[in-house]
Amino acid sequence: MRKTVQNLKVIANLRLNDDHHILRLQSADKLEQIHPGQFANLLVANSSTVFLRRPFSIYSVDYTLNTISVYIKIIGEGTRALSKAVVGSEIDTMFPLGNKFTLPTEKEKVLLVGGGSGVASLMSLAQSLHAKSNEVAILIGARSSKDLVELDEFSKFGTVYTTTEDGTQGVKGYVTNHPVLDLELSAFQRVYSCGPEPMMKAVAKKAKEKSIFCELSLENTMACGFGVCLCCITKTIDGHKCVCTEGPVFNINILKWEI
């Protein structure tokens, strides 16, 4: 659908743990297609300190209820204020923004690798891939078991693997320590990832070594979200690109990353 700014009604504010919330926001209009990888830019109203909108991956879309969900990790004052959104209130939302993940045209075996709040951009992707009968594996890394959220939801769309840095759940260590991203990686035709940059670099390196198609969803600070401020750039083989419009999804072969 084309980009729009609307007051969306908060119909649910789900607290996942101390610092993770999912807001479900309803449009008064019929939603047109929103693609996996796209994001929304939320205004933090009546804040004396937060000036700019805050970008969030669109976590899921419900075309029957005309809702989008965003996954919020509390980082600073903007995200804290949004995490306190009251059901029934409205949030000024600009969406859908950005490009999208490239989905396979034929059935493939695909691996999704998420770390931290990076899982936010992978839920709708997992859903879409599953709906097109791809064989989906989802590897999620976190600091500790309490940071692993929404695993049941992910498991509806594929096989879920986990790692934790403290070993409280799944394989101990980073996602790159998991066999699915190591010895078993050659079994996959595609890898998608979103998470902290060191993690995505490690994932990209693994995929590149085995010449597997790999797309990453990048995070960046943005002033506008629709390609006019030129603040959220990343270096590519074609020069600086805006993460908000030419991304957030980039193929690893385009990025000028030292991997």
């Binding site: 300190t49 000036f51 700019l52 943005m222 002033a223 603040c231």
Partner: peptide, 13 residues
């Protein structure tokens, strides 16, 4: 990069 910083009632670019 970084090219932008949010400040009180404004921003730097």
């Amino acid at each position: 990069y970084p090219r932008m910083a949010e400040t009180a009632s404004g921003m730097l670019n």
